[in-house]
Amino acid sequence: MSSSPAVRPVSFARGAPSTDIVDVEGLKQAAVDAFTADPAGMTGYGTAVGYPPLRQWIADKHGVPVDHVLVTNGSMQADAFLFDELVTPGTAVLAERPTYDRTLLGLRQRGADVRLVTLEEDGIAVDEVAQLLEGGLRPALAHVIPTFQNPAGYTLSLAKRERLLELAREHGFLVFEDDPYVDVRFSGEPLPRMLELDGGAASEHVVYACSFSKTICPGIRVGYLVGPPALIAKVRVRATNTYIAPNMVAQGIVHAYLTGERFPAALERVKSALAERVGALDAALRTHLPEATFRRPEGGYFLWVSLPADAGHDVARIVTEAADRGVAIVAGTDFLLEGGENSFRLAYSAVQVDDVEDGVRRLAEAVHAARA
């Protein structure tokens, strides 16, 4: 079928907030405040480690000395620098199955020997990790998205966080704790970061990455790394050779916004909107696609849907049929090296709550049409 011009497009594809939950006025004021308070710092090149006041704010947040922190143009830039430092052709890297498609792309572009480990509802299967290590695998790092994982929305349990760190210490690999969604929890109790569990300032086995894309807005493009200072110093050299310094204007605005009066309320508004949207998505899936299995997340942007494996589903056809009905989703195959034909990711962050049920209804029609 061809989509009618009257059909309202609904995109469950992009992991970004809708503009109505971004504090645009607050960001405008933060820009004015930043340029007023520090015109030289905002307009100069700066240094490769980032805008000094923001770097200090991050260090204080995580309880580490400032030389443990490097601020980048988004957390994907932080990922790229770290991969460039640690991964060469043939380097073994552990990652979750499924995992963020850009992570897979970055690792494969560098020739990594990527070993995907089953992702369970309470996080990466640490027993499977242990078996790989006992079998002789010697990874340089394990990439984990521990909180509201992309694409699944799952969270790594405390017991598994502790066990993964034990394995890292025993076998001498780094845990790359990629954690951009941690601050958009809307239900449940927060868990300690693995950076904290490994000693914070004394941590030797964790490199932590985060971003302000999910708590402020994605257009700001500010992320950061926290890790052992010797490693951060090496990454700093790469950053210097790449761009001399990251975007001081963006980082200065982020700092002014974080330290201003509006940020706490704005973050609560984001979390409240996400909670409402995931509630509507949960209800709509149960109504219109009852054969689907999924776990309702306690935060973040994403929900992973699996259809019965023995029912002959083809997610590529589902994506096409959904697009014909004005609905965008992302195929599960994008997040795996193999498999995923019966799965897809739904991002609810950008979908207005009034559009959720109609979008899922059309998606269910697409699922059934694809099988036919």
Rank of each mutant, 00 (worst) to 15 (best):
A92Y: 12
L86H: 00
I145R: 11
G135D: 09
G106T: 13
H143P: 04
T99V: 15
D113H: 15
N150V: 12
V87L: 13
P98C: 07
A130S: 05
Y100G: 00
T99K: 07
D113S: 10
E85P: 05
L119Q: 04
E96F: 03
E120Y: 12
N150S: 09
N150L: 13
P139S: 05
A95C: 04
L141K: 03
E128T: 06
P146L: 13
L116P: 02
D113T: 12
L141F: 11
L119D: 04
T147Q: 15
Y100H: 10
T99W: 15
E121P: 09
L116A: 00
V114N: 00
Y100C: 01
H143K: 01
L137Q: 11
L107G: 07
E85W: 09
D127Y: 02
V87M: 10
E120A: 12
L133R: 00
A130L: 08
V117D: 00
R110A: 08
L132W: 04
Q131F: 11
T88E: 01
G90Y: 13
V117C: 01
D122S: 02
A125Y: 09
A95F: 05
P98N: 03
L86Y: 00
A130P: 02
L94M: 13
T103S: 09
L116I: 01
L141C: 03
E128Q: 08
H143C: 03
P139I: 06
L137I: 15
T103H: 06
A95L: 01
V129L: 13
T147K: 11
V93P: 06
R108G: 09
E120N: 13
D127F: 06
T118A: 11
A92R: 10
D84Q: 08
R115N: 10
V144M: 09
F148P: 09
H143M: 08
G106C: 14
F148L: 07
F83N: 04
N150R: 10
G90H: 06
G136R: 03
E85N: 03
L132C: 06
F148W: 15
L132N: 01
A140V: 12
A95P: 03
H143E: 04
T118Q: 15
Q131C: 01
A112H: 10
V126F: 09
P98W: 10
V93F: 05
E121L: 06
A95G: 02
D122H: 02
V114T: 05
Q149G: 11
I124T: 08
I124G: 00
Q149T: 14
G90F: 14
L86I: 01
D101G: 01
T99S: 12
R138Y: 02
P89V: 05
D84W: 09
Q131M: 07
T99P: 12
E85S: 07
F148V: 08
A112C: 07
V126K: 02
V129R: 01
E85T: 09
A95W: 05
G90M: 10
F148C: 06
Y100P: 01
V114K: 01
V126H: 05
H143V: 11
A92Q: 07
V144Q: 05
T147S: 15
G106S: 14
F83E: 08
